[in-house]
Design a protein around this nucleic acid. Sequence first.
DNA 1: CCTTTACGTCAGTCACGTTGACTTATATGC
DNA 2: GCATATAAGTCAACGTGACTGACGTAAAGG
Lengths: 139, 139
Amino acid sequence: MELLFFAYRDFTTECDAILASYGFGRAHHRVVYFVGRNPDISVTALLEILRITKQSLSRVLGRLVREGFVTTRQDPADGRRRLLALTAKGRSLESRLSATQRARIAKAYRSAGGVAVEGYREVLMGIIDEADRRRFHRP
Amino acid sequence: MELLFFAYRDFTTECDAILASYGFGRAHHRVVYFVGRNPDISVTALLEILRITKQSLSRVLGRLVREGFVTTRQDPADGRRRLLALTAKGRSLESRLSATQRARIAKAYRSAGGVAVEGYREVLMGIIDEADRRRFHRP
DNA sequence: CCTTTACGTCAGTCACGTTGACTTATATGC
DNA sequence: GCATATAAGTCAACGTGACTGACGTAAAGG
């Protein structure tokens, strides 16, 4: 429990500094991250991932759209849906944020070795709710 | 990065429900947890673990003391220090909260096996800031 | 005795989550 | 074709838990 607490805390603090320079918070990071990972994701699908309310998301997402980090377009297949995607500016922010986290994980992976990483992923997967594990069984 | 996000989210959501029934939030949980783990910890030491400001802690800690979950007493060796400890009520809350998390981790450990757990701990340790790792080298 | 440390507190601010209610546009089933 | 359901956006009000800056008090220590 303590391991997870410290790991998650240290995992996020570097990003917080970058985000602060944009006037953003962690909520903006999460949106940029998951939109980057799931291009053309719908608003509802994003809400299900983040498990927050529409109102909470709209404040954060609205600003990201207004400031040109995220685009929305109507789904050609279902006009009610708005598909979200990152702009070049959004991708640039996303990779800047991810870079620090990736570096931290890469360093931990290198020093621990492949077998340890296997185990690490297996245990984390076990901690995650069954329903959410499907997300990781994609090609 | 996604693994950590989902694991940490699912790891905390069960506790949030219990905490809500007391009108508490995650901040209260963290205080109860670390005071439980470190009986007779001083306020400053707790602040260093949590990495929050004195003002933030004081609101949370003050309420826990007023409602009888935590006691403060003057350090006999240094009268400036207040030593924090859980009351029986506090220990009961702590173990109620920890039980759900322990169960989740135990389940993940069991299904992953000992080798995986070794790797898991090694990688998480690598993600944690060097300075904080010392915390885990206690007897 | 003076400085430092530990703790507490007042005042103001901000990010980010909540609930509830309502509107608009589009899909879809009968 | 109309009624219902779904997707999205929005208004209003609120709570928690962070933050900064400033100040006060008690105890320790050179």
